[in-house]
Nucleic acid binder design. Structure first.
Lengths: 353, 353
DNA sequence: CGCTGTTTGGCAATCGGTTGTCATTCTGAG
DNA sequence: CTCAGAATGACAACCGATTGCCAAACAGCG
């Protein structure tokens, strides 16, 4: 008579507000308001309802809540390649921030394909409240189409009128060039990443500015795929080149490049210095350990979600009142010096001149 | 007059079956059936409805569908640590399989905490159709509680009455031991991973069996954390030890261990051979490249989802008719020989005896 | 021509919350 | 004692699809 001798029904599914309402002798709407609109219900009544609900193990059904309100409590992060270690900490940071705010994070992998990305958006957009596009491979216009449907934040990229979170690539690049200059290098090559990459553009420009400013010979090769394989190809191309230092688009390429150099009998850093970007997992235990411009990966993910949450809050309370301050969050990068960079080798220097 | 001069309403949200029904001059139910129950609607009518729906840009609202049916088309995979490269390919494999079946994959990271895992389950269970627990940190009973609510598949672990997908650790370990034996090693140490780990138990047992069978001295040290830091500690402990070969619980530890050895002036593989488990990202470019028992990571994820999908299909069509064949999918592992293993060093061998 | 059987489409209930509106009760001031 | 106004809870209409049931239409058969 007391607890679970309910007899017939209610075997499978969990209790609803109707069950709780019946048990508490109130209307379902009151139960609903107890949870969703605190203060609207008399505190004694609310207390009683909460107690009974807890006893029955009531949990509000997210799907049922989402239907009338649109609040699914899910946000999505779309990454171009989950197997790229670049994203690990980003995802972790995003997840933590989302969880803390009561949101569930949906990670979608699109395997470097703009087409898959569009499909993933199609599938996830209707069920999320907002999205983070991490290193999107889509065009600005495609992004804007998505942003029209749900609040959107882009990561590692800037797109007009869409909030974004990026690393301070320019300053990082500048530091890297200075570091190499301090080591005596007078000729540096930038190994470019994928053509469409926003980050590649920024990095190259910063590289150009820094080298001209310091009166260093700055060259560019590429583009190459942003993978170890791409780095390997770059190593071949660079072998015939007279440069004593390279800065590569990212760590993955740098690692591949160093492996390529080893095969060709070129020693890092004695014959050539290598600098990467991002400080991904593995850049500390490759050989030699990689000097790299560290991106604040964890923060990148965290800020992206935070920005999105702010956007969501704004949207819900007055749609187009705010004049869109076009937020671009710029996070600092940091040069991590390890074993892959060293003073300019005299022998090679002679060959270079 | 033709396309979007609709005048007043319908600014914000997308069209519903009601809109389509009105435009086509049929009942909403007919529109619904057109999509969800092909054949139930006259093919001409269906064709017309489909055309009109396409013109209007109608897309069925997944939330609305989920409410009455419970079919959210989402499955979750819960991983103990997204930053562990072990999971990259697993997630990719899972995602691909899920997508192909029209499901969206929800990746939840629980940061190695059983508590966070329970919270993540709490949050995700009500909105997914099924879950994959990849390397769960929870107790069997907690897992069973979850499995009672939604179809569940466990990865890298076996739990009574719950379908599971695991690697053939035993055979892999046997191969590793034989490999070392062939190189002349007569004493091998197993560096254990976390105590609660199912895989650790299986690997240790297989190690024990293989060494006794080959009449090799098999020892065990640990447990250690399954990270690079754990491996580093292990290296210290092993330095005083007279062993010419170690097999570590996983690659991450093996990499950490090798770094520890280097610091102590112990050369790999000249002084000591190292074998890891899993073949994660980075095991090919650490120094020396790691010999490891490769787990079929991609397949692991793919099969887990496939098993789950099979379970879902079963559930929907006759709940408890099938007598539960208790499926355990066992995937083969493979020994990848690289530079971290070599013939037994005579000097060290003398010291060992 | 009448009867049965099969398509096919419509009606309406339902999933489980949310929320606008209204009625009731209670409080306190005049 | 009366009445305005606030506090509180109930009613009912949604959100958008699914689906059991029924009725109309139509075909086929004797």
């Amino acid at each position: 008579m007391s607890e679970d001798s309910d007899g017939n029904g209610a075997r499978r599914s969990s209790p609803t507000i109707y069950d709780v309402a019946a048990a508490a002798g109130v209307a379902p709407s009151t139960v609903s308001r107890t949870f969703s609109r605190p203060g609207r219900v008399n505190s004694e009544t609310a207390e009683r309802i909460r107690r009974i609900a807890a006893e029955m193990g009531y949990r509000t059904n997210p799907v049922a809540r989402a239907l009338p309100t649109g609040r699914t409590s899910i946000i999505a992060i779309i990454v171009s390649d989950v197997t790229n270690p670049f994203f690990f900490e980003i995802i972790r940071g995003a997840e933590e921030t989302a969880s803390a705010a009561g949101y569930t994070l949906l990670v979608a992998d699109v395997n470097e394909s703009a087409d898959a990305e569009r499909k993933a958006l199609d599938r996830t957009l209707p069920l999320v409240e907002g999205i983070v596009l991490a290193t999107s491979r889509m065009s600005d216009s495609s992004i804007r189409v998505a942003a029209k449907q749900r609040p959107t934040v882009v990561l590692n990229r800037t797109t007009t009128d869409i909030p974004s979170v990026v690393t301070d690539n320019a300053r990082g690049m500048k530091r890297a060039v200075h570091h190499l200059a301090d080591l005596g290098h007078t000729s540096i090559t930038y190994v470019a990443g994928p053509q469409g990459s926003w980050a590649d553009g920024v990095r190259w420009r910063a590289f150009y500015d820094a080298t001209t400013e310091l009166d260093i010979r700055g060259k560019r090769v590429g583009p190459f795929a942003p993978t170890q394989a791409g780095g390997l190809s770059a190593a071949h191309e660079l072998a015939k080149d007279a440069t004593s230092a390279v800065i590569s688009y990212n760590d993955l390429m740098a690692i591949g490049m160093m492996r390529g150099f080893v095969r060709q009998g070129i020693s890092v850093p004695d014959d050539i210095s290598v600098v990467g970007f991002d400080n991904i997992f593995g850049s500390d235990f490759c050989t030699p350990p990689l000097t790299t411009v560290a991106a604040p990966l964890h923060s990148l993910g965290a800020y992206a979600v935070q920005t999105l949450l702010a956007e969501l809050a704004k949207t819900s309370y007055d749609r187009q009142a705010a004049p869109k301050p076009l937020k671009v969050v710029l996070l600092p990068s940091q040069l991590v010096v390890r074993g892959s960079t060293g003073p300019r080798n005299a022998v090679l220097a002679k060959r270079a001149s």
